[in-house]
């Protein structure tokens, strides 16, 4: 292991800290909602520890009944998380420092926030396993612990929206998008993604808008590249 493993891990943990803090009230809320649907604390812990996908878990808990419609819930998780295919493909280009066997394991932790922070790191420096571990372990432990806590005593908690915690994720993502800014082509990609996502959210419904918006953005980026408009910087 490189001598700077500790500092890399710490840098990753620090980078994910805003998301790890913002995830606390949402973990409590998810646990409380799941408890209301009859899930035990052990089941909530198991769900967060093995699925580790916040948006899919919220949607699933919303649909949960007794007995659990497991085939439907599995299909729902699959559709909501299809965006991970794009995300994983993009990040797979930056895993040169990871052993091939470890990639399959580390990719398990590809929650939106961890992925976005890893992409940001990879844009400026080599993404090391220690940095990624700092990102992943910090958010993962927070999510599992706080959602389990929520199933035990989360019903006393209010709506995170009241305190602006929902906007913390919006702000984190805005900050990251600005960090990925590479001039006018970025604006064109953003416009395509935003318009497609807004239209899909309104007319298609469900959680399809992320996938549709994301695909619209990357199709436009590919088209710009084809038109030799230098869609993005060609380094790396």
């Amino acid at each position: 292991m490189a001598p700077n493993t500790t500092s890399e891990f710490r840098a990753g943990a620090l980078a994910i800290a805003p998301a790890a803090i913002a995830v606390v009230p949402f973990g409590l809320l998810l646990g409380a909602l799941a408890a209301k649907k009859g899930l035990s604390p052990l089941e909530v812990a198991l769900m967060s520890a093995t699925i580790f996908a916040g948006s899919a878990q919220f949607v699933a808990v919303d649909f949960w009944q007794h007995p659990a419609p497991w085939a439907f819930l599995t299909l729902t998780a699959l559709t909501i998380n299809l965006r991970h295919v794009m995300m994983g493909a993009s990040l797979s280009r930056h895993l040169g420092a990871f052993s091939p066997a470890s990639r399959s394991l580390w990719i398990f932790f590809l929650a939106d926030e961890i992925w976005a922070m890893a992409e940001r790191r990879a844009a400026n420096a080599e993404l090391t396993p220690a940095y990624y571990a700092g990102l992943a372990m910090t958010l993962y432990l927070n999510w599992v612990c706080w959602s389990t806590a929520g199933s035990l005593f989360g019903s006393a908690m209010g709506d995170p929206v009241t305190y602006g915690f929902d906007f913390a994720f919006t702000a984190i993502f805005i900050g990251l998008i600005i960090g990925f800014w590479k001039g006018p082509p970025t604006a064109v990609i953003m416009a395509a993604s935003a318009l497609a996502a807004i239209a899909a959210e309104r007319f298609v419904g469900g959680a399809w808008y992320i996938l549709i918006g994301g695909i619209a953005g990357i199709v436009v980026a590919a088209a710009l590249s084809l038109l030799q408009l230098e869609a993005v910087g060609d380094e790396r």
């Binding site: 993502f173 993604s193 953005g217 084809l226």
Partner: peptide
């Protein structure tokens, strides 16, 4: 090259799609 450009756009495209409707 075209695929690389598309993949380079994934962070901006996905993050924008996640937040645009809520904004």
């Amino acid at each position: 090259r075209v695929l690389e450009s598309a993949l380079d756009a994934v962070p901006v495209a996905v993050l924008t799609a996640v937040i645009a409707p809520s904004i």
